[in-house]
Design a protein around this nucleic acid. Structure first.
Length: 849
RNA sequence: GCGGGCGUGAUGGAAUGGUAGACAUACCAGACUUAAAAUCUGUUGGGGCUUAGCCCCGUGUGGGUUCGAGUCCCACCGCCCGCACCA
């Protein structure tokens, strides 16, 4: 009997699949199509365990669908543009293109040994000119359809490196390389009009039944639909061009508690005032320092500047309110101006306390009471009843009712109007970077901004660029920008901004349906393969990537590149958890932490005997060195072990901790299965015992039922546990050779989506015909799943006190009678009668005394 | 700050509102072995008792709903993720 040799087995079966072209996806009307897609990787250079987990899950689905008679599309590609390539070029002098394609080659080489059922003939990288050419064509179509426009927007500006920074490059408000305090600066940028689709993107969330509820909720909150009142305060002493300040509020019911109004430092009023007020100019400049992220703005200390201007309250013109410029007000949302109601908003409360502004309660227990507030009071939506000072209609109402009543009242008094707003902003796609898809427009002195002609696509990235100085190499390229205007033929300059890499990943799923078509999509292929039936990826993409993809699918429909049926491109979504690992840490002479790779640590010590401290498991990251290289695992144990392990233990949506012991155990189990099956194959002479045969086959059908259910519902860890249990049963079974061979064959099949190589080997050993990968999935015999008698737990007052054996089809009355006859029940009853007996058929009996 | 999530033995975790701890790891004991490894078998939530057995407690904390709560509701504590130029 031979031993389990993963390396030999895996190479052999990967060749066999390759030769039989079993994963090549071809359109066919004989079978239902199934498109399974995992979020494609960024080519960082090394695959990591997170990739292994993600692609293994997709592979389990794909292989199971293949076995259940589907025509499966399971492609793979590379999200290949982005900053790391430029950073590498800056650090080591190479070219982003070379770096990226080398990484792709490396990662493909690490991925193929995993034995994924991928149609590699469809592979592409988003930095392939063939791909980004079609992206440019899409952009031009979207521009023509009015889905793209230009406006000013704020970026992070590094005043020392003279370059735009990504949020990631801003650390504690400072540039990551220069250390200079980052400033906010306005540039003219391209935008997708995603906000026009806010309502549709919101409403359609309801149709996404097979998406996680939490992702839909997060998208709903991101779109942020709100109903509020838009109105204006008139100025006591008007400023030129500013006799009113327009305000939007979602809490008009607190209007009688207003004690100040605040405007953004970027509000036109603030900008006008700062021209004649040096102190304000300085204040505004201070506010414009630091990063542009919402987090940075929201967590910064709340600061205000009293402009000295006063406005009149709309309901009482003798009531004057001060106008502050405040750093926490966003120009992007609403009108860039708010009224502050300290009594009912904690942020306003803090602001009022700091600047000595009045705190006026509008929600009070009664008309005559006065609140001494130590923090903002927010009336709960369910709690009754507070008197709302000032609004006849809104008194004694809370939550949305109070808001609606307040809007109605204000409208009736001619103060503003109710409006619906969305938090969702348009998607700025311009990036001042080289390694991205060039935006295909030119700037012509005569014609202005002109779209490049489609026949001139692609607008290719030039290869001769350098990264020795910061900033965008396209900007300073000696010739690349020089071109002629497609409209007038005169001299013109190319746009030097490239597209956000989110654009690349917003339509790649559609491109996979026809990766080499001369247009963005091929109509027949798109109609056949779309939608993605199962999409799998990380929860970190719950909002942006998925929302942008939903927008793009709609835009592609409008521009004729996708059918109407594909405007929601992902029928089902699954968000998987991360792979984590312990962190091993020592300290250097100065007490700074030093991290160590897992392979350098044995039993809590380094090779030189130094003890390491163990930091709890966290997402694998290079900086913490808590990474396990899948290549090492595959060469040590084989791909099937890596696949089996990442599916075991943790539910797929949760994080899984990689442990050396766990990997070892996974390998041992696969070797054990190999051994058990080998013994069964060798031991063909043994006689059957009918009872043991029956028991084993019953267990086999239960395993088919449970594992199939697990695979179909992303219960991979449960399916794996079930397979362990079934293996134990098979190992201990005294059934005859025929029954054991049958059970072993089914075991190999049930394992095949997870451990495809081992399963092929077992299938061959057991004499199966053809490849297991194309063999039909086993079906459980419903009759074999039902036992004649079942065991029911019996509770007394909800606590388990015994169990009874009853016929599978016993009536409630019979079950009740048997349960009441139990000693424990009789003892508890002390001769009396139970208050109530609850019988849940097939589940439980509860006797209430 | 805002939004979303998670919290169960020594450990990873299981459990359509219905026997909490499946399955695995680790540990311990046994078999095999000159020995070790490998393999196989068994034990293991905590506490208690009149110990063939039985009782009590137990799913982050405190409340609530229910015949019955790890699961649903409310509040709190802790940790994790996202926040629009990271991919």
């Amino acid at each position: 009997m031979s031993r389990y040799s993963a390396a030999e087995i895996e190479a052999r079966w990967q060749d066999a699949w390759e030769q039989a072209s079993v994963f090549r996806a071809v359109r066919s009307d004989d079978k239902p199509k199934y498109y399974v897609l995992e979020m494609f990787p960024y080519p960082s250079g090394r695959i990591h365990m997170g990739h292994v987990r993600n692609y293994t899950m997709g592979d389990v689905i794909a292989r199971h669908k293949l076995a259940t008679g589907h025509n499966v599309l399971h492609p793979m590609g590379w999200d290949a543009f982005g900053m790391p390539a430029e950073n590498a070029a800056m650090a080591s002098g190479g070219h982003p293109k070379d770096w990226t394609y080398q990484n792709i080659a490396d990662m493909r080489g690490q991925m193929k040994p995993l034995g994924l059922s991928i149609d590699w003939s469809r592979e592409f990288a988003t930095c392939d000119p063939e791909y980004y050419s079609q992206q440019q064509a899409l952009f031009l179509d979207m521009l023509e359809a009015g889905l793209v426009y230009r406006k000013n927007a704020v970026v992070n500006w590094d005043p020392v490196d003279m370059t735009v920074l990504a949020n990631e490059q801003v650390i504690d408000g400072k540039g990551w390389r220069s250390g200079a305090e980052v400033e906010r600066r306005e540039l003219t940028q391209w935008f997708f009009k995603i906000s026009d689709m806010a309502e549709e993107l919101l409403e359609a969330l309801d149709t996404l039944d097979n998406w996680p509820a939490k992702v839909r909720l997060m998208q709903e909150n991101w779109i942020g639909k709100s109903r509020g009142l838009q109105f204006s305060f008139s100025m006591v002493d008007g400023l030129e061009g500013h006799d009113r300040v327009e305000v939007y509020t979602t809490r008009p019911d607190t209007l009688m508690g207003a004690s100040f109004i605040g405007v953004s430092p970027d509000h036109p009023l603030a900008r006008q005032l700062e021209k004649d007020d040096d102190a304000l100019a300085e204040f505004n400049a201070e506010c414009r320092k630091g990063g542009t992220t919402a987090e940075a703005l929201e967590t910064a200390e709340k600061l205000g500047y009293d402009t000295g201007l006063r406005v009149r309250h709309p309901f009482d013109t003798s009531w004057e309110l001060p106008v502050y410029v405040a750093n926490f007000i966003l120009m992007d949302y609403g009108t860039g101006a708010i009224f502050g109601c300290p009594a009912h908003d904690q942020r306003d409360f803090d602001f009022a306390t700091k600047y000595g502004l009045p705190i006026i309660s509008t929600y009070l227990p009664s008309q005559d009471s006065v609140d001494e507030l130590t923090e903002a009071f927010v009336p709960s939506k369910t709690e009754e009843v507070y008197y709302n000072r000032g609004f006849a209609g809104a008194a004694h109402q809370t939550g949305n009712d109070a808001v609606d009543a307040a809007i109605a009242f204000c409208e009736s008094q001619g103060v503003g109007q109710g409006v619906t707003k969305y938090r969702l902003r348009d998607w700025g796609l311009s990036r001042q970077r080289y390694w991205g898809c060039p935006i295909p427009v030119v700037h012509c002195a005569t014609c202005g901004v002109v779209p490049e002609a489609k026949e001139n696509l692609p607008v290719r990235l030039p290869d001769d660029v350098s990264f020795d100085v910061p900033g965008n190499p396209l900007d300073r390229h000696p010739t690349w920008r020089q071109t002629s205007c497609p409209s007038c033929g005169g001299a013109a300059l190319r746009e030097s901004d490239t597209m956000d890499t989110f654009v690349d990943s917003s339509w790649y799923y559609a491109r996979f349906t026809s990766p080499h078509a001369p247009t963005p999509t091929d109509a027949e292929d798109a109609a056949y393969w779309m939608n993605v039936d199962q999409y799998i990826g990380g929860i970190e993409h719950a909002i942006l990537h998925l929302l942008y993809s939903r927008f793009f699918a709609r835009a592609m429909h409008i521009t004729g590149h996708l059918p109407k049926s594909a405007i929601e491109p992902f029928n089902a979504l699954f968000t998987q958890g991360m792979v984590t690992h312990e962190i091993y840490q020592t300290r250097d002479a100065k007490g700074r932490p030093v991290y160590h790779l897992p392979e350098e640590v044995t039993d809590g010590r380094l090779n030189d005997g130094t003890e390491v401290s163990i930091v709890p498991s966290a997402k694998m990251s290079k900086s913490k060195k808590n990474v396990v290289d899948p290549e090492r695992i595959i060469s040590a144990y084989g791909a099937d072990t890596a696949r089996w392990f990442v599916l075991s233990d943790s539910p797929p949506e949760r994080d899984v901790e990689w442990t050396a012991a766990g990997a070892e155990a996974a390998y041992k189990h696969l070797a054990r299965v190999y051994r058990i099956v080998s013994e069964i194959v060798d031991d063909i002479a043994k006689d059957a015992s009918p009872e043991a045969d029956e028991a084993l086959l019953r267990e086999m059908h239960r395993a088919i039922h449970d594992v199939t259910g697990g695979v179909e519902s992303f219960g991979f860890n449960a399916a794996v546990a079930r397979l362990y249990a079934f293996t134990n049963t098979l190992s201990k079974s005294t059934a005859g050779a025929a029954a054991k061979r049958q059970a072993a064959t089914v075991l190999a099949q049930l394992m095949s989506p997870m451990t495809p190589h081992l399963s092929e080997e077992l299938w061959q050993m057991l004499g199966g015909t053809g490849l297991i990968v194309t063999a039909p999935w086993p079906v459980a015999d419903a009759a074999m799943l039902i036992d004649d008698t079942i065991t029911l737990p019996v509770q007394i007052n909800g606590k388990r006190r015994g169990e009874i054996e009853v016929a599978q089809d016993a009536t409630k009355e019979e079950v009740e009678k048997i349960a009441l006859a139990l000693d424990a029940v009789q003892k508890a009853l002390e001769g009396g009668q139970p208050k109530k007996v609850i019988v849940v058929p097939g589940r439980i009996v509860n006797v209430v005394i």
